[in-house]
Simulated scan of single mutants.
Amino acid sequence: MANKTLKVQLFRSPIGTQPKHKLCVKGLGLSKVGQVRELEDTPSVRGMINKVNYMVRVVEG
């Protein structure tokens, strides 16, 4: 059985945000605006996405 994945895109710069939010973006493996990462769909990843939802998007496909 294949693991579910999410494609996450950074669409807004983390400059000027809270340090914990910057660490969440780094933890998701995102460093450049427009970058897309495919991540495993786990509760910890969902929590990080939720925390920085104003900077990242879950991309379809």
Rank of each mutant, 00 (worst) to 15 (best):
K22C: 15
R57C: 04
K20L: 11
R12P: 05
K7I: 03
H21K: 14
G34P: 01
L30R: 01
V33G: 11
V56K: 06
M1S: 15
I15W: 03
N50Q: 15
S31P: 04
R46N: 00
L23H: 13
M48G: 01
M1G: 15
V45T: 09
G61K: 04
V33D: 10
R57T: 02
K22Y: 05
N3H: 14
V25A: 02
L23P: 10
V36W: 07
L28N: 00
L39K: 07
F11Q: 07
L30C: 00
Y54P: 07
R12V: 15
G16N: 15
F11D: 00
G27I: 03
K51H: 15
V33K: 06
G27H: 03
R12E: 04
K7A: 02
K4H: 03
K7D: 08
L39M: 09
P43E: 02
V8F: 05
V8E: 00
R12K: 15
V33H: 05
V36A: 10
V8S: 00
P14W: 08
E38G: 06
Q18D: 14
Y54N: 14
D41I: 08
I49S: 02
N53R: 15
T17I: 15
A2V: 09
K20R: 14
N53L: 11
K32C: 11
G61D: 06
L23T: 14
R57Q: 02
E40Q: 14
T17S: 13
R37D: 04
A2T: 13
G16W: 02
C24L: 11
E38C: 10
A2S: 13
L23D: 14
V8C: 03
E38V: 14
C24V: 10
T17D: 12
C24H: 13
V36H: 12
R37W: 01
V59K: 05
T17W: 11
P19W: 10
N3I: 10
A2N: 12
G16C: 07
V8A: 00
K4N: 04
V25H: 07
T17V: 05
R46K: 09
Q9R: 15
V8Q: 07
L6H: 09
K51W: 08
I49N: 05
I15P: 06
N3M: 09
T42G: 02
V25N: 03
